[in-house]
């Protein structure tokens, strides 16, 4: 089992529904977010290119946050999901410094918090909150180890990228381009 998220940048309109859904589902404190929208405009006027995408923890295979955590609070569970155990986290900030995606933040209660791929929903057979609410259905979630899963099929058929692959983290959030 290897969970992955695939996000179609051609279909994303940047509405931030995924952000709000996540904040509601996971009781994210006001002023914080576990996922966010990035809008990137590139090129020289008048030939400009726009990319909209929803970003979050990439649940890296080679996760620097897990490597540098001094207590083991950051860990990887079945399916490759990177999680933080609040009662083991001392709030040293090493994982935040180590993340090339700045996907972690210090929760007002002190521990470090981040996207969990909604693993509490996955256990009930539901999709992550962000995926389930996307109005343009630009987000897909599934098992990369299963060649017939929607995500595997999409990655086979479409051109795609990951963010900052040069950081060597082997991210598992893919963007269709």
């Amino acid at each position: 089992m290897r969970y992955a998220m695939v996000i179609d940048t051609k279909k994303c309109v940047g509405c931030s529904d995924c952000v709000v859904a996540c904040q509601t589902e996971n009781n994210v404190p006001i002023g914080y977010c576990r996922d966010w929208i990035t809008e990137r405009v590139e090129g020289a006027y008048p030939i400009l290119e726009l990319e909209l995408r929803s970003e979050r923890c990439n649940h890296c295979e080679n996760a620097p946050c897990v490597r540098c955590c001094p207590t083991g609070a950051s860990h990887i569970i079945e399916g490759g999901i990177v999680l933080v155990t609040p009662d083991e986290c001392i709030g040293c900030g090493a994982c935040i410094e180590s993340c090339p995606y700045d996907a972690r933040y210090q929760h007002p209660d002190g521990y470090v918090d981040k996207c969990t791929f909604c693993h509490h929903r996955l256990e009930k057979g539901q999709l992550p909150a962000c995926v389930s609410v996307c109005p343009t259905k630009c987000m897909y979630f599934g098992d990369l180890d299963n060649p017939n899963s929607e995500v595997s099929q999409l990655l086979k058929a479409r051109k795609h990228k990951t963010l900052a692959p040069e950081a060597g983290t082997k991210p598992h959030v893919y963007y269709l381009i």
């Binding site: 002023g31 914080y32 977010c33 966010w36 929208i37 405009v41 090129g43 020289a44």
Partner: peptide, 11 residues
């Protein structure tokens, strides 16, 4: 020209 905006403002 390159513009990079992110809809995030984490403390």
């Amino acid at each position: 020209e390159e513009l990079f905006t992110s809809g995030r403002n984490l403390p």
